[in-house]
Design a protein around this nucleic acid. Structure first.
Lengths: 205, 205
DNA sequence: TGTACATCAGTGAACGCGCGTTCACTGATGTAC
DNA sequence: TGTACATCAGTGAACGCGCGTTCACTGATGTAC
């Protein structure tokens, strides 16, 4: 709340939040700059005081999302220490928790068509989130004999794909695609099977 | 090629194919009815001779996609018989092959916002595709002792989520998200680990 | 075979709409003296 | 404390655009006789 503007107070952030609410409600397609402005109680033209245009506003929403995402993942990772397994499982849960709690951000990040390489800053914060998952995977890999250890990047790519797939198919109120199981349970059980496959948790559990 | 129309020949199908090409090139957002018409060499108004409107055209594209998808999955399943494992692995490969070979269809099916419950016909053909995967999973489940056997619906949901995640994150020329590994290899290795976790393939392979 | 007629796929002009963006402006706020 | 001035966030009107959709039409094709 540091900076207060002349009229609105903090229009920049208000616009980001309007954008996120709209994206959450209507999908990335439904989002329009004009409606985001209206929701913030402001003329469309006012947006251009703070952003270069429509894309730039979405990119800022995605940026803030990656920031929160990376923080949550990192917090989860730390919270599981010193157990590599606990840390890893916590990051998996954090992924799903983020997608559920911040659907607007999630969509802006992964479904809006904004390239992660749009700006170096955006690429960096996305990289930071990804790195947490990869570190968690690498730590856990230490418990696998080297000769049957998959590359950490592959390990974490598997988990990321699984998490993303669960979110997209089952955690969204995807029109008409009813989830056969709660998404948490689905992701947790899948990761359980996967880790057993790597020999990281005992087979008869 | 049974039916030939008066002027164009088979405008209905030509429109579906224009739509698919556009969706593939520009994403579900980039698709417009007017441009699909132009591509088929026809006035926008002509579309209304064959479809109720924009949504209906996308839905038809999705429908045709599910049809091909279900066929491919079923063919893969059959081709692996009588080995439950071979059949299952073939369906996994078929999933990815479909996504790669028919990106327009895939996007229309999973990313266009068209509900699978839009019409009973669409729901039925989507169900058919899903059922193949579930049957393959159920067959394979027979080789797991009943007390540690996950429900077939969960098993197949895991695989579907994994496949979808790999497609969305790594198999698309997703702007700026370079795949660390070829998507085929990623999916195949993930499924390998997963099946090992279920005790369906030997641990030291 | 030839002619008159019926069909209906596709035309072309028009519509209302909301979009993203621009621009000269205004008036509330902050600052200098 | 009071006044004159500078700043600049947000206004309001306007723009050109392409969208999805409608409608009366036209003219190529198929059919009846």
């Amino acid at each position: 709340m540091a900076k207060r503007g002349y009229h609105h107070g903090n229009l920049r952030q208000a616009l980001v939040e309007s954008a996120l609410a709209l994206i959450e409600e209507k999908g990335p397609t439904g989002f329009t700059l004009s409606e985001a402005a209206k929701r913030a109680g402001v003329t469309p033209a006012a947006v251009y005081r703070h952003f270069e245009g429509r894309e730039d506003l979405i990119a800022e929403a995605a940026h803030q999302g990656y920031e929160v995402f990376a923080d949550l993942m990192d917090y989860a990772y730390q919270s599981g220490q010193p157990s590599a397994l606990a840390a890893f499982e916590a990051t998996g849960r954090a992924y799903l928790a983020f997608a559920r709690k911040y659907p607007g951000h999630y969509i802006a990040m992964f479904e809006s068509g904004i390239s992660v390489n749009r700006t170096p800053e955006l690429a960096a914060v996305a990289r930071r989130a990804w790195d947490v998952l990869e570190r968690a995977a690498a730590d856990l890999s230490q418990h696998i004999p080297p000769e049957k250890r998959p590359p950490a990047a592959m390990f974490s790519a598997h988990i990321w794909a699984l998490s993303h797939g669960v979110v997209e198919l089952f955690a969204r109120n995807s029109p008409g695609r009813a989830s056969p199981f709660p998404p948490d349970e689905l992701l947790e059980s899948a990761i359980g099977v996967y880790l057993r496959g790597l020999g990281l948790i005992p087979a008869d559990d």
